[in-house]
Design a protein around this nucleic acid. Structure first.
Lengths: 95, 95
DNA sequence: GACTTATTTGCACAAATAAGCAACTATTTC
DNA sequence: GAAATAGTTGCTTATTTGTGCAAATAAGTC
């Protein structure tokens, strides 16, 4: 793994490594349909602006995907993608 | 996954989610014998105090294991343990 | 078009984090 | 015991990060 890949992976892990963001991810884990920010903000008990910013980080790192639906924005997990990256790291660590 | 488990997992991911720390981990990945802090500090090009602190964080999160050997401290990865936790998260995300 | 609802952005602030240097401890070597 | 080597800790500094409030934007509803 070169430095660039390592940087990207670190950014992904950092995005997942914050309690509220991880909570958002876990919430989405349990949903089989995309959720809007209001619903997600409720699960963390934070201001909507906070949820918005966390979701932005997660989106930037490719953890979640967003699609507009009227005035709402529906978020869903990029399940396969993230799972694969985590497993790749696990494989590398296990050697 | 309850809040406590989520907190612990977030802490682990945060520990891994910093470039220099991830670099230390990757360095250890490629070693089949424990490495001392000097060697690890060299791979990141940081002051020994910085490496020391990063290793402390990694040890606290159970990523690495330390054993004293004379004046050196030899670090090695808790490979199976970390890999398992990452895979568990991957499984949960994949649903 | 006024009003409500969903979300983002600007701003301010507090807390956490990473970094390097210098000083310290501990252990080995001479 | 003095010098060298390995590592940690205290201190300071700069930067990042998470948060909430208020205001702005955007889109649906009446």
């Amino acid at each position: 793994m070169n430095a660039t890949e390592r940087h990207e992976l670190a950014d992904l892990l950092k995005a997942l490594g914050e309690f509220n963001r991880l909570s958002l991810v876990c919430e989405l884990c349990g949903c089989d349909t995309p959720q809007n920010a209001m619903c997600l903000c409720a699960c963390c008990n934070v201001d909507s602006s906070v949820a918005s910013r966390h979701l932005k980080v997660l989106a930037q790192e490719g953890v979640v995907q967003m699609e507009r639906k009227g005035r709402e924005r529906m978020y869903s997990l990029n399940r396969a993608d993230i799972a694969q990256k985590l497993r790749l790291l696990a494989d590398q660590i296990e050697g």
